[in-house]
């Protein structure tokens, strides 16, 4: 069971929430930080030095003897990662290549082969002996965020846990989609501001296109009649949890404390939340 924790934009407390969710369920959940451009779950979780692995992808390598400069690959590449430089032959721009492999397949002269290039890293560690954190980290300037995200999610778990929490990248572009496609359920963290709602609506639209079940977590909630609650009620979206607006919570979090430290009793709520998701999932599968 994979549960993605996402928010249309930054600043809603998404990572704070996913960290709390995994801490409260550490006996049955692990976490994968899929925000590969700016992973930050490790800042909250601490722990030992991680084991680091390189994520490799295949980009085209040209055999100058076979290439006739026909241009078929250049026309094919929708990312403009290939160029014919006159007498200089074919040039590959690894920083623009999205590793689709298409040019290699269509070259009529078999002049292109796959060559490995590094796209980022996966860092794995076990915190306190029982909490596994996997962090995907994109190499600066690499266009292949989805490649690194998929690799981080696919990394073989070190600890046996029934649930994996995916801390999703912000936005609704291809990185977001790569994370969501792997998820069985999505928790959307929002705050009850007009901006929060706008981004929530965009995220929901993207998730519905992928037909993924989702529910909403309202952070800094002003109560059952705040903007986000009313929106969810009107649209018929399930609200999985509300975390009340409070200066103490904000303060505690700004000092690097987790929600578990800041809010007494939230640990049980977060266990109930996971129970509820696992149960709905079970009925969905059997029904």
């Amino acid at each position: 069971m994979k549960i993605a924790v996402a928010s249309g934009k930054g600043g809603t407390g998404k990572t704070t929430f996913s960290v709390a969710l995994v801490l409260a369920n550490r006996d049955r959940a692990r976490i994968v930080d899929c925000d590969v451009e700016e992973p930050n779950a490790h800042l909250f979780l601490g722990g030992p030095e991680p084991v680091v692995e390189t994520v490799r992808a295949s980009i085209p390598v040209v055999d100058g003897d076979l290439c006739t400069a026909c241009g078929a690959c250049v026309d094919f590449c929708q990312y403009n990662a290939l160029a014919l430089a006159g007498s200089g032959g074919l040039l590959v721009f690894p920083e623009l290549c999205h590793d689709c492999g298409g040019c290699i397949r269509i070259c009529p002269n078999n002049a292109l082969t796959e060559g490995p290039v590094s796209r980022g890293t996966i860092e794995t560690k076990i915190i306190g002996g029982d909490l596994e954190l996997v962090t995907g980290r994109l190499e600066v300037g690499s266009p292949s965020a989805p490649t690194v995200i998929r690799a981080a999610i696919a990394r073989a778990p070190l600890l046996e846990r029934e649930t994996t929490i995916l801390d999703a990248p912000p936005g609704t572009a291809c990185s977001f989609a790569a994370c969501m496609l792997a998820a069985d359920h999505c928790l959307l963290v929002t705050d009850p501001t007009p901006f929060g709602l706008h981004d929530l609506a965009l995220a929901i639209e993207a998730i519905r296109e992928m037909s993924k079940p989702f529910s909403v977590v309202i952070n800094r909630s002003l109560g059952p009649d705040d903007l986000a609650s009313v929106f969810c009620r009107d649209q018929g979206y399930a609200v999985a949890m509300r975390i009340a607006e409070s200066r103490e919570i904000a303060q505690a979090c700004s000092q690097g404390k987790t929600l578990l430290d800041a809010i007494p009793g939230i640990g049980q709520d977060l266990r109930d939340l996971l129970d509820a998701i696992l149960e709905t999932r079970a009925t969905e599968v059997s029904g």
């Binding site: 403009n80 160029a83 014919l84 430089a85």
Partner: peptide
Amino acid sequence: ASQGAGIQSAQLVIA
């Protein structure tokens, strides 16, 4: 073009 406009333009000029 969303990316690589310069690369494409350079090829055009060379050709």
